[in-house]
C-alpha cells in the first residue's frame, strides 16, 4: 500500500534463508502486458512480498488456467521469496491447482443446505452421465467433477460452481442442458 519506507518489513526478512531455489531449466513464463502491469501494482501496493504471493498465484491461474510445473518457482523468483513459501500456500488452499482441472470443472456443493435440497442426486447424476468419479478428470480433459464445501449460496441450492460462475437451483434437467451446451462449445 503506501509504501516501503513507512510500513513494517517482512517479519522474516534478514533471517538466514536460502533464496529462491536454483532457477529451473524449465520454460520461463511471462505475463501478458496487462497482467504484468497488474503484477507490478500488486508488488507496489502489498506491504510485504509474502502477502503478495496469493494474489500473484491468482494472476498465474488467470493467465495459464492452473499452476503448471515451474510456475511456483517462477513466482518465488519474481517475488524474491523462498519457493517453500509458495508451495506452503498452494498445498493449504484448495483453489490453487497444480493439475489441470479440466476445461469444465463442475464443483458441486455437498454441504448441509444443498444436501437438504438434493445435492447428492445431482452428484450421482453427473457421475453417471460423464462416466467420472468425484475427483476425476475425463480422459479428454474436458470434464472434472468435484464435491466442494459450502459455496455461500445456501438459499439457492443445489448449487455448483463452474469457473467464475454459480449455477443455482439445479435440477437434473438443468444439469443435462448445461452439459449439452458446454459439449457443443468444444
Amino acid at each position: 500500500m503506501k509504501q516501503d519506507t513507512e510500513l513494517p518489513k517482512d517479519p522474516e526478512q534478514g533471517k538466514v534463508e536460502s533464496p529462491a531455489e536454483e532457477p529451473s531449466a524449465e520454460p520461463s513464463f511471462a505475463f501478458s502486458p496487462e497482467r504484468e502491469a497488474k503484477f507490478q501494482e500488486i508488488v507496489r501496493r502489498y506491504p510485504t512480498s509474502f502477502s503478495a504471493i496469493m494474489p500473484t498465484l491468482w494472476l498465474c491461474q488467470a493467465e495459464w488456467g492452473w499452476l503448471k510445473p515451474g510456475i511456483p518457482e517462477w513466482v518465488a523468483e519474481r517475488l524474491e521469496v523462498p519457493v517453500r513459501r509458495v508451495y506452503e500456500l498452494i498445498s493449504f488452499y484448495t483453489m490453487f491447482y497444480t493439475e489441470n482441472p479440466g476445461k469444465y470443472n463442475l464443483q458441486v456443493c455437498r454441504n448441509i443446505s444443498c444436501h437438504l435440497m438434493g445435492a447428492q442426486n445431482i452428484i450421482d447424476h453427473i457421475k453417471k452421465k460423464l462416466g467420472i468419479e468425484v475427483g476425476q478428470t475425463s480422459a479428454d480433459g474436458m470434464w472434472r467433477l468435484e464435491e466442494v464445501e459450502c459455496l455461500g449460496a445456501c438459499g439457492y441450492g443445489p448449487v455448483m460452481q463452474v469457473g467464475d460462475r454459480y449455477y443455482e437451483h439445479l435440477t437434473i434437467e438443468k444439469v443435462d442442458a448445461l452439459i449439452e451446451e458446454w459439449s457443443k462449445s468444444e
Binding site: M1, K2, R45, Y46, M54, P55, L57, W58, L89, F92, Y93, T94, M95, F96, E149, C150
Partner: peptide, 14 residues
Amino acid sequence: FDLEVIVHQGAGAY
C-alpha cells in the same frame, strides 16, 4: 484523511 483499500481474494479455506 487518507485511506488506501486493497481487495484481496482468498483461495478456499473456511
